[in-house]
Design a protein around this nucleic acid. Sequence first.
DNA 1: TATTGTTATACTCTATAACTATA
DNA 2: TATAGTTATAGAGTATAACAATA
Lengths: 139, 139
Amino acid sequence: MDNPLLGMPMFATVRLGRIARATVSGAFDQEGLSWRTHFALYCLTELGELSQRELADHLTMDRSDLVKMLDEVETAGLVRRAPDPSDRRRRILSITAAGKDQLQRGKDVVDRATDEFLAHLNGNEREQLHQLTLRAIGA
Amino acid sequence: MDNPLLGMPMFATVRLGRIARATVSGAFDQEGLSWRTHFALYCLTELGELSQRELADHLTMDRSDLVKMLDEVETAGLVRRAPDPSDRRRRILSITAAGKDQLQRGKDVVDRATDEFLAHLNGNEREQLHQLTLRAIGA
DNA sequence: TATTGTTATACTCTATAACTATA
DNA sequence: TATAGTTATAGAGTATAACAATA
């Protein structure tokens, strides 16, 4: 394509981020699933019970936006919202059996989307890109 | 932070893209400039005259969105829109002297924002990340 | 028929402020 | 006074359809 804008690292990074999001979002759409929901379920499984605030921080999502997502996900029976006895302001989130089923379906979708997204790189390059990305984030 | 979501390359890539966009966008906001405008001016300088369609393709932006941006940029005297004598559907874009001045200011902003964005990486790592990003995009 | 620029529209993502109930 | 969850709202970014003029 010979696009001079791609010579700027920031522009190229924003572009790759858009491609990544469009790819994962499209893959989940095809399955009738939500990628945001998947990441929430994934997080609850890996870390166990979390408050809404904690989950929002991991997703880098505002608490107020998470509320709407959790309303849907709770209604769908994928996540439980239980009051925290030790702090009645908080609500403890946990994944349900149905949530675990959907998580597994989502993992397959992520795997396929990741393969598509990184199709131009071999295994070693994919790992390098991932590691450099994590370091750039500061994680 | 120990975020399990970052173990997924797609999630980490989307996150880094968000950081890149927020950093460059914030840096331009501070100067009272627009990063979208800067990229348009940059492109017109590197490639010379372009049609709106061609510029939109380089920016990965829909033609219809570009119209509004060009209205502002043309009013500000940074870009000229001239009819194309050989194809009266097209309008040929070119940068003005004022546009070149603003482009130079924007370049400084991009340089500072890039340094901030890649602060955790050394020069060699920055170059590696950039090259891998370009390959992943398929450029 | 197909394409360029244009208008209008809508949806997602993100950000912010303010309220309530608790601490 | 500070925090967790909530509600409401607005803005940026992105995507789509449809139209007029032109090829």
